[in-house]
């Protein structure tokens, strides 16, 4: 920052005036921006203020302000309930499987696609791999459910063809995580590879030439040039992913789980949905949701700090 420069009162006055004139000149920009700001206040910041009901016993007739404070009672109720551990475990495990199996998949695909010659085959393969990204989770889950059906589903038909008994996959908790993770990979591998392919095109071709001159084969080129070249992208994506280790979205799980699979399938967000919107226990479910997002913030901050220390790539 250096030495502080002292401004005279007149200079300050002039700077203020110039700023004011700038604002006046650009008044239309503020007119344009006003609805945007109002949008963010109403739909993003008002709900953030609404989080206070997590510390209250919310009563719809009294309204948020008049409802009595209860401190951390809602949180205590959650941690004392039999569900707390199960929900945290399920949320963590589902996203952890997503991390170890789902995260590397698009990177591998991008590396393999990168080895193909540019042309129609590469283009068509890519286009086909993007397909699931454009379909709704209802369609994807609907197809999956029909594939898993015991009497007519494809997977069970294959089992039956090999003389195995048919399994009702979706009512047994032990299959849920595998099914969910597998679906995530199928639906996300193609689309996820785009960002790495973009990073791959940014790798300097001269580096490859230098490596070839030094006698490096394809494998050495991949390890010493390609992977370091896309490492910053991988790091950023990994930070984002770790930041989401406790944020599993409710919608896809809602489509696939049943009460019989809650043991492994029920996650914090689906629990918040059920308790909050179906049982209308607003304060309690807001507390559970707040717990979830605070943990998520902490995870993201830790991941970001670690990555900053390691090698200068960070989100902020």
């Amino acid at each position: 920052m250096g030495a502080k420069v002292k401004y005279t009162a007149a200079q300050k006055e002039r700077a203020r005036k110039r700023r004011w004139e700038n604002i006046k000149k650009n008044r239309w920009l503020y007119v344009m921006f006003a609805p945007v700001l109002i949008y963010y206040i109403i739909f993003k910041y008002v709900p953030m203020v609404g989080i206070v009901i997590a510390f209250k016993k919310y009563n719809a007739f009294k309204g948020i302000i008049a409802s009595p404070w209860v401190g951390f009672a809602n949180f205590a109720r959650f941690f004392n309930s039999v569900y707390a551990w199960r929900l945290i475990r399920n949320t963590f495990l589902i996203s952890f499987y997503g991390l170890i199996f789902g995260f590397p998949a698009p990177i591998l695909l991008a590396l393999l696609l990168n080895e193909l010659k540019d042309g129609a085959f590469k283009k068509i393969t890519q286009t086909i791999s993007y397909l699931p990204h454009f379909l709704s989770s209802v369609i994807i889950a609907g197809i999956l459910i029909s594939f898993l059906r015991p009497e007519t589903g494809l997977f069970n038909n294959i089992r039956a063809a090999f003389g195995q008994e048919r399994i009702y996959y979706l009512i047994h908790p032990q299959y849920f995580r595998t099914i969910y993770t597998g679906m995530g990979i199928w639906a996300g591998i193609g689309w996820g590879s785009i960002i790495y392919l973009a990073a791959l095109t940014g790798v300097d071709p001269e580096l490859y030439e230098a490596c070839i001159i030094d006698g490096g084969g394809r494998i050495r080129q991949t390890i010493h040039i390609t992977i370091p070249g896309i490492l910053p992208t991988i790091t950023i994506m990994l930070i984002l992913r770790i930041g989401q280790l406790l944020s599993v979205g409710a919608d896809t799980i809602l489509l696939l789980y049943t009460p019989s699979t809650y043991e492994t399938a029920d996650v914090i967000s689906t629990y918040v949905y059920r308790v909050g919107l179906i049982d209308a226990d607003y304060s309690f479910s807001t507390a559970v949701g707040l717990f979830n997002s605070v943990i998520a913030m902490i995870l993201l901050t830790i991941a970001n700090t670690v990555s900053k220390r390691l090698g200068e790539t960070s989100l902020w």
Binding site: I42, F43, K44, V46, P47, M48, V49, G50, I51, I53, I64, A250, S269, V272, Y273, G276, L277, Y282, S285, T286, G289, L290, N292, S293, M297
Partner: peptide, 11 residues
């Protein structure tokens, strides 16, 4: 950071 499902619903 966001308000989450329930506060948004109440809003």
């Amino acid at each position: 950071f966001s308000g989450g499902l329930i506060p948004t619903f109440l809003t």
